[in-house]
């Protein structure tokens, strides 16, 4: 009997059951910085860059919200790739949690890219969707590929199997990005030319990279939120499993 008690204590001490604490101070600060940075971006867009540039007009302003979607999306997809590789090498669930969180945020950035792109298309070409635009197309195809990753999460029931399949798919999805990009860039129907050289003014370049940084702060806050949440859920699940095991052992 005392041996069973020792087992229970041992099992219990492997990890405390996580409390339902609110967001940490660090996280709140992170979000505040993100909001301030975005406010700063709006301020720059209103005051610093020219309101209109020749041949493009004012609709180009959406570019400062569009471009970060592309860069940050790619960055988080890169994270998904790296975390998936790490998971397959180590089989540690923490990498799967990181991969899943990165995929969700990457997908969000991808959607922002698509929605702003589509809005821009409406302003520039008077159509929400332009099949012949290679940027819209590759963003859409990439979003479909990574949507598959998110769908896999609920499709596989057994957790260890889910992690394995997701990691493989995550790697595959990332490897596909250059394929998507080049095949559509090189072989799409001739697209509407975008006059990017008109946007090489110093103020525009500065604001564009500031926008990437500002959104990166926001996306990393979201990543952190997702990661903390999945970590907590898994801890709770583990704690429940421990309780079930203890229960069985005391019955036996």
């Amino acid at each position: 009997m005392s041996q069973t008690a020792a087992h229970i204590a041992d099992d219990w001490n492997k990890g405390a059951i996580p409390g339902m604490t609110g967001p940490s101070r660090g996280f709140v600060a992170h979000v505040l910085v993100a909001l301030t940075a975005l406010f700063g971006l709006n301020w720059l867009v209103v005051t610093y860059v020219p309101f209109e540039i020749k041949m493009i007009g004012s609709s180009y302003l959406i570019f400062f919200y569009h471009f970060p979607g592309a860069i940050n999306g790619a960055l988080f997809y890169l994270g998904l790739f790296a975390f998936s590789v790490a998971y397959l090498r180590t089989k540690k669930p923490v990498w799967d949690r990181r991969a899943r969180s990165a995929a969700a945020v990457g997908f969000l950035a991808n959607m922002v890219l698509l929605v702003t792109g589509s809005t821009w298309a409406k302003a520039a070409w008077n159509a929400w969707w332009v099949w012949s635009d290679p940027r819209l197309m590759s963003a859409a195809v990439a979003s479909l590929i990574f949507l598959g990753y998110l769908m896999l999460q609920s499709a596989v029931e057994e957790p260890a199997r889910r992690r394995q399949i997701s990691a493989v798919y995550g790697i595959l999805a990332f490897v596909n990005i250059p394929v998507v990009h080049f095949s559509i860039q090189w072989f799409g129907q001739t697209s509407h030319p975008m006059k990017f050289d008109a946007m090489s003014a110093e103020s525009i370049v500065h604001t564009r990279w500031y926008a990437v940084a500002a959104f990166l702060v926001l996306y990393s806050a979201l990543y952190r939120w997702r990661y903390d949440r999945t970590t907590r859920n898994e801890r709770v699940e583990e704690a429940l499993n421990r309780i079930r095991r203890i229960e069985e052992r005391t019955h036996a």
Binding site: E158, P159, L240, N241, R244, R245
Partner: peptide, 11 residues
């Protein structure tokens, strides 16, 4: 040597 196989809550 001290093999464990775990299916979720079940050992």
């Amino acid at each position: 040597h001290s093999v464990w196989k775990r299916f979720g809550a079940r050992d």
